[in-house]
Nucleic acid binder design. Structure first.
Lengths: 203, 203
DNA sequence: GTCTATATCATGATAGAC
DNA sequence: GTCTATCATGATATAGAC
């Protein structure tokens, strides 16, 4: 049916965020105009302002949602017990879960991930200050796993802070090449990186 | 001395590239205007076009120069013999040299590196097609080291292609946190990452 | 809720004086 | 080689009709 002037819709909001997500990821925040976003949704540019006060808020909301989902979903995964114990889990099991979660989470959200680390500098200072601690909080959880593993003797590495950054960087790299339907399945990718991470931390 | 209209200078060209490099790295290609670049140099916007036909060429030239320097300097390093032999060097020695070179090269050129991998999508398709093979050529040299190491039994990893990408991603991550004068010296950073890479490839 | 129309401003690039 | 001035375009955001 042809798009008319009168009304609809309940789903324009989500479609705007979807279009912005895709376009920001593909071309970069500053290279995308409100007109382009509107065109992709099928409305005029002015209509976007019924859903967002401005372009910057649109970007911030996308990032905020991504980080919140990341933290929430990891909290659930981390809380899941491996069915045998309810004591504190050993560091290698926790690390494996982190690695597989991180890859799985990001591999299924390439656009969100791309924006989350490429468009940080497009945020206003105030918005940046609200996103950055969330990312820090996520990375700190990896470091606590590495610290625990070193303390228990399960891992061996010269510097857990640097190792944290190295592992995150290595895992984030997956999104630069992984494509669904490619040579490797998600399960295979997770297994390969888990093997490499395990070795890297001296497990 | 005050900037005058009449003439100078021989060094405006380099200063333009320097300013563009810094501003592109800091704010992103699309967020930087020709007027901003001109202001940083201390000329008017129109004067920039005595040195570059357009903004896109300015970006391309910066990237091209970076990639050419990278390949040239690595070629020199790779050709250097460890003083004892002139036979083919063992893979672990070659890998160590690669890791230290990669970190050292990029750590001293944070702006160039930032642009080289964040602004690829700001290139026109034609320019991208000229840059991409250079990056590929560089990464292929790492993979050939890993392949040689696996063949000789010095390394052990399930997939050298993925390992190549993983190592590159891990090493590139250094530039997200390293700052001169920080907790770790360049030598210490190189040593830490060499340890982690060594383990990751099963050396 | 969406449209059309518009205010306001910044952009990349060019022309011509000096 | 740089300046001033300007063109043509496209940007974000708003106002008011429907």
């Amino acid at each position: 049916m042809a798009r008319t002037a009168g009304s609809h819709s309940d789903i324009t909001g989500p479609r705007i965020r979807e279009a912005a997500l895709h376009l920001f990821a593909r071309h970069g925040y500053n290279a995308v105009s409100m007109r382009q976003i509107a065109a992709q949704v099928g409305v005029q540019a002015g209509a976007l302002y019924n859903y967002t006060p401005d372009k910057q808020t649109l970007l911030f909301d996308l990032m905020q949602h991504h980080m919140t989902t990341l933290l929430d979903e990891y909290a659930q995964i981390a809380a899941t017990q491996p069915a045998t114990q309810n004591a504190t889990q050993p560091a290698p099991a926790r690390l494996q879960r982190f690695v597989r979660f991180h890859i799985g989470f990001h591999i299924t959200r390439p656009d969100e991930m791309f924006i989350a680390y490429m468009e940080l500098r497009a945020l206003t200072p105030e918005n940046f200050a609200r996103i950055e601690p969330q990312r820090r909080r996520y990375e700190d959880q990896l470091q606590s796993i590495l610290d625990a593993g070193v303390a228990s003797g399960a891992f061996s590495m010269p510097d857990t802070k640097i190792a944290t950054l190295a592992v995150i960087a290595m895992l984030n790299g997956v999104n630069t090449w992984y494509r669904p339907g490619g040579r490797l399945s998600q399960e295979e990718v997770e297994a390969l990186y888990w093997t490499m991470v395990q070795k890297a931390v001296g497990a």
